[in-house]
Amino acid sequence: MKNIKILALFTLSFLAFSCGSNSDKKSSGFSLVTSEKTAEYKLGEEVQVSLKNSKNKEIDSVSFFFEGERLSAENNGRSARFKLQDYKVGNQQIEADIYAEGEKQEITKTIKVLSNKAPVSYTYNIINTYPHDQDAYTQGLEFHNDTLYESTGQYGSSSLRKVNLETGEVLNKISLDDQYFGEGLTILNNKIYQLTWREGEGLVYNLDDFEKTGTFAYNQSEEGWGLCNDGEKLYKSDGTEKIWILNPETLAEETYIQPAHHLGLSSKLNELEWVNGKIYANTYQKDGVAIINPESGIIEGVIDFRGLREKVTQHAKLDVLNGIAYNPNTDRLYVTGKNWDKIFEVEIVEK
């Protein structure tokens, strides 16, 4: 029951898809059929996929693939079965290459892969409290060499900041142009990367002096939400069920994970933070933080931060939880929110 209750903190995105899934290939007469009508599976379960040949074409050969791996065929090459082990969760595609009557046909079918375990439920203890600018609409928060950096949002008041954690003093600040709505940030190789919301581009700065040195396009996604890095690659959320993985040189969105637990996929993942090999992500307008495996997308844990918002000064502009910062030098975690006048140092404990 604990896990079910804590999962209510998250907005689940149960994405619809067609069981036929070959809308652009209907004229071919071929489609893929799975053993489960809903095409929803959990890790560890077996998937059986068969080729349906509604036009009774003469088939020379069929090859089945899942996540780029060729599957062993059976039933005279007309079907395949495989076990969902060590695969990514999310909406994944089964592919089939069909050679029939002198032509090659390529068809796909989408299945939803979920975790076979409920996330571990966590709560928090407050270790310390620090002052925070109440006017800061916090979008991104990150430590670098024990110094706190912050991105704030809202059109006309978005900014990039360097902040003294102990006092709340803003040590350096630049304002974004009015057409930008600031979002998440991360620091890698002495560069600050800051997202904008709907402007379709991210901003790049020198770490030392906040000099803007360039921009980068989002390519495949439409919006910018959260940003973090693992020391090599950048991870970007966009409000959908995807967390994009960016090339560190070109900043192109090359691939993605789709965070999911045992009940479904999660969307609206906002602020991201890299913590001891995992991605911590809060869900926009919720009081929970997901702990995500960056390789598989599995949501391994959920932290319940309910009650924290009530511990800050209540005022008209007070908004939701947003802002996660981990200091790897001290192994301490900090959280805040939009227009909160406090940053909380917290200890995460299992329920």
Rank of each mutant, 00 (worst) to 15 (best):
S35M: 12
L84E: 03
E58Y: 13
G288S: 09
A260V: 07
I292M: 04
Q194G: 01
E106G: 05
T213F: 06
K83I: 10
T147H: 08
G29M: 05
A325R: 00
K311L: 10
Q220G: 13
S54P: 04
Y280D: 01
Q134H: 10
F65L: 12
I279H: 08
I303K: 08
F143I: 11
V349C: 08
E232V: 08
A73D: 11
N22F: 00
E58T: 14
T283V: 14
F305D: 01
K351R: 15
D331L: 09
P119S: 10
D331Y: 13
Q258H: 09
A8E: 15
W197G: 01
L272K: 00
N56D: 13
Q154K: 15
A16R: 12
R198W: 06
Y235N: 12
C228E: 04
S21W: 00
K342H: 08
K311R: 14
K104H: 14
I243W: 00
S63G: 02
A260H: 09
T152I: 02
A252P: 01
L251R: 07
G214W: 05
A252C: 10
N189R: 10
I279T: 00
V346P: 00
K2N: 13
K112Q: 10
L141R: 04
G307N: 11
N172R: 15
L84I: 03
I127Y: 06
S21K: 02
E350L: 04
G337W: 02
E69H: 14
S115T: 05
E222L: 13
S50M: 14
H132W: 02
Y218W: 07
G202T: 02
L333G: 01
L207E: 05
I243K: 02
F30N: 01
Y193D: 05
H315M: 06
R70K: 15
R70H: 09
T108N: 13
T129R: 11
L141Q: 07
N219F: 09
V204S: 09
T123G: 08
E273M: 07
I192M: 02
R78F: 11
T138G: 04
V113Y: 00
E40P: 02
E101W: 06
H144V: 03
Q258I: 02
L84W: 09
L12K: 14
H132G: 05
W274Y: 14
I107E: 05
A16W: 07
V320I: 13
V312R: 04
N276D: 12
Y205T: 06
I126T: 11
E106C: 07
R70A: 13
G90T: 07
N53L: 03
K104I: 14
T38Y: 11
I303C: 10
S50V: 04
D86L: 08
E36N: 12
A260W: 03
